[in-house]
């Protein structure tokens, strides 16, 4: 049926097809919305589009972004995890205990913290894969178990005497602008970048990443093709555990102390960012840039409203409306134009 078209026609067709595909991507829309909102805030709030403000924003949201990278992998695999905030808190607190009570050296502490995160992630994977518990139920249960145990054993006490290597600020790049403002690229921002890059490479450039996409798209087919679905479940939840632990460590680094319940209630914000960025709860869909854009949108909304003097309490309303509007538009626009064509395709004679 399709005939080989001549050169230029084909190029135009390909470009058109690419645009059509691009137009349907949530990332494209998200990017446009961010541009619009950013411009608006830039015009209305003079301090908004300044480099220090932007860098500040990045640092504030680095913890959420790091964890969102892990959650993104789990969402792509077709699962969901509610327990990551608890995981982050547990990993952070364990590491803080090791550092302040036992005075272990930095590499050991960091390694131990990350190991706790990966371990908790693997417990989730085991519950989901071997015991066949739905991911949302398994992780809700794990969240209450691990967070409550943390509160029980810590008695809710914060650890303030973190060692200096943990809390002292690490600045990778520092410059003074003509305006006199100082721009610093700090450890959280660098880690966020590294984590995004790592996740992006893992998911788009390696076999296992593509397998995770395949599994999220059609688990049954993945099994038939010979993909080891159990191993992927461990990889996805283990990776989220790792990301959560890293986020927990960075969070303590930023605030200089370990508070057992500091990360509670970030679950929904991180999930919103991932979903805004186009990761689907049904699995198999989503990109790292999309998730980052989701975080950026939430960040500039909060910061911009803040600079405009809007009450911080108003922010949650904005998040709610943003989630409702963006998800509705995505679903509704993909539903349009899906009519089975029988008239045009069937032979009209004979």
């Amino acid at each position: 049926m399709p005939e080989p078209a001549s050169g230029p026609d084909r190029a135009v067709g390909a470009a058109l097809a690419r645009w059509r595909r691009l137009r349907r991507r949530p990332e494209t829309w998200l990017f446009l919305v961010i541009l619009a909102v950013g411009t608006l805030f830039g015009l209305m709030a003079p301090g908004f589009l300044t480099l220090p403000n932007v860098i500040d924003l990045l640092e504030t949201y680095s913890v959420q972004a790091i964890i969102a990278m892990g959650l993104f992998v789990v969402l792509v695999s077709g699962g969901i995890d509610i327990s990551f905030a608890a995981t982050a808190s547990v990993a952070q607190y364990c590491a803080a205990l090791l550092a302040s009570r036992l005075g272990l050296p930095a590499p050991l502490v960091i390694l131990a913290g990350l190991a706790v995160g990966v371990g908790l992630g693997c417990v989730n994977a085991a519950l989901i894969h071997h015991l066949r518990i739905t991911s949302i139920i398994a992780t809700i249960a794990m969240m209450s178990v691990s967070f409550s145990l943390l509160m029980y054993f810590s008695g809710g006490r914060s650890i303030y005497d973190l060692p200096d290597w943990w809390t002292s600020r690490v600045v990778f790049y520092r410059a003074e602008l003509a305006s006199g403002d100082i721009v610093r690229v700090t450890l959280p921002v660098v880690l966020m970048g590294a984590m995004a890059l790592l996740t992006w490479a893992l998911m788009t450039r390696t076999s296992i990443g593509r397998q995770i996409y395949a599994m999220g798209g059609n688990p049954e087919a993945a099994r038939r093709v010979g993909i080891d679905v159990g191993r992927l479940t461990y990889v996805a939840y283990g990776y989220l555990g790792f990301a959560a632990a890293l986020g927990g460590l960075v969070q303590a680094h930023r605030v200089g102390e370990s508070v057992p319940n500091a990360m509670v209630n970030t679950e929904l914000a991180v999930l919103s960012a991932a979903v805004l960025g186009g990761a689907s709860l049904a699995g198999g869909v989503g990109t790292v840039p999309g998730v980052l854009l989701g975080i950026v949108l939430l960040a500039i909304l909060q910061n911009g409203l803040n600079l405009l003097g809007v009450s911080p309490y108003f922010f949650q309303i904005v998040i709610g409306v943003t989630i409702l509007v963006s998800t509705s538009i995505t679903v509704l626009s993909s539903r349009r134009g899906r009519r089975l064509r029988t008239l045009g395709e069937a032979p009209s004679h004979g």
């Binding site: 999930l271 709860l281 309303i317 998040i319 709610g320 989630i323 409702l324 998800t327 509705s328």
Partner: peptide, 16 residues
């Protein structure tokens, strides 16, 4: 839209 997302949105909105 999946009820998790809808009610996540309404939760945020109402709480807000």
């Amino acid at each position: 839209v999946h009820p998790i997302l809808v009610t996540l949105g309404t939760k945020s909105l109402i709480d807000g």
